[in-house]
């Protein structure tokens, strides 16, 4: 049977990808952050699952106001890096896993989670930057990927609780997949940040620390946060943190924190990463 082994949460700031793509990671602005990536990458090098479910959001790239869905599963054989306005990132094509993706879709819908489905979706920094953070610059990505795209831009986003419950339903689906494969799950985005408005640049380390601590020991506490809690305390774009709840919901009740990284600033963002293993 398939086995869900571990989860990662990470911000997906486009600047991190740009710094790597343009060879700037040794510059003083970036050096400390990339130093912090070293242990994270060492863990990933030792723990490559067969398939990784990446919970991310599209940023007005492949989905926009004319068509969007709350939860969408990518079932294609592969996904191209998207042109987000400055040409596609020169990173490997993302290989999908249609068989597990379709099993997830079928299992989730019968479990009352009505997923939208796409077989034609270019993936933006929300997905490719976490890949670069975990695996640096390989010729081929070492894991197959199932993109799970969440609307976090158009209000109302799914609730923090709904995201957690979706994670639990994903776990039930993975547990019932008959092939002997290992599966990882990543929640991406956040942590506290606000990009738009007169309050741009607001960050909240106390809120982020509370969220990360709860993620490890009391994940249900993070499901009680409302949209306005996120907007007010973590910045309008900080609401991306709900995607970490999907990841956490798919893990065991008790998890082991393997690594944590927190750094201000990355662009206008508080960068955070955490690796959690099932006990």
């Amino acid at each position: 049977m398939a086995k869900l082994v571990a989860g990662m949460g990470t911000s997906h700031v486009p600047g991190v990808g740009a710094a790597m793509d343009n060879g700037k990671t040794d510059e003083p602005y970036w050096a400390e952050l990339f130093g912090g990536f070293a242990p994270l990458r060492a863990w990933h090098a030792e723990n490559v699952p067969d398939v990784t479910i990446i919970v991310f959001n599209d940023h007005a790239t492949s989905m926009a106001l004319n068509h969007y869905s709350t939860f969408m599963m990518g079932v294609a054989e592969s996904f191209q890096p998207a042109d987000e306005g400055w040409g596609p990132r020169k990173v490997p094509v993302v290989e999908g896993h249609p068989e597990l993706a379709w099993h997830l879709v079928e299992s989730l819908i019968l479990d009352e989670f009505d997923m939208a489905v796409t077989a034609d979706f270019d993936v933006d920094h929300g997905l490719t930057v976490p890949m670069s953070i975990a695996y640096d610059q390989p010729d081929v990505w070492p894991t197959k990927v199932i993109p799970l795209c969440v609307n976090v831009i158009q209000h109302p986003q799914p609730t923090a609780l709904r995201c957690y419950k979706l994670g639990q339903a994903i776990r039930r689906a993975v547990d019932s997949f008959p092939e002997d494969i290992t599966v990882g799950i990543w929640g991406t985005g956040g942590l506290s940040h606000q990009l738009g408005g007169e309050r741009a640049g607001v960050v909240n380390p106390d809120f982020d620390r509370m969220f990360l601590d709860n993620l490890v020991n009391d994940p249900v506490a993070n499901t009680r946060l409302t949209h306005t809690d996120f907007i007010r305390e973590a910045g309008a774009e900080g609401i991306e943190m709900i995607m970490w709840n999907v990841m956490r919901g798919a893990l065991d009740e008790k998890v082991r924190e393997v690594y944590r990284l927190y750094h201000i600033p990355v662009s206008a963002t508080a960068y955070g990463a955490i690796i959690l293993e099932n006990e």
Partner: peptide, 30 residues
């Protein structure tokens, strides 16, 4: 309730309708 948060513009049904074509113009620059 988030209208009380200062210097913050939430993309909701109000801004969706007001800014639809403006945002779709921006989107075209992909």
């Amino acid at each position: 309730d988030y209208d009380d948060v200062p210097g913050t513009y939430v993309l909701d049904s109000r801004s969706y309708r007001k800014g639809y074509h403006l945002n779709m113009f921006c989107m075209s620059l992909n």
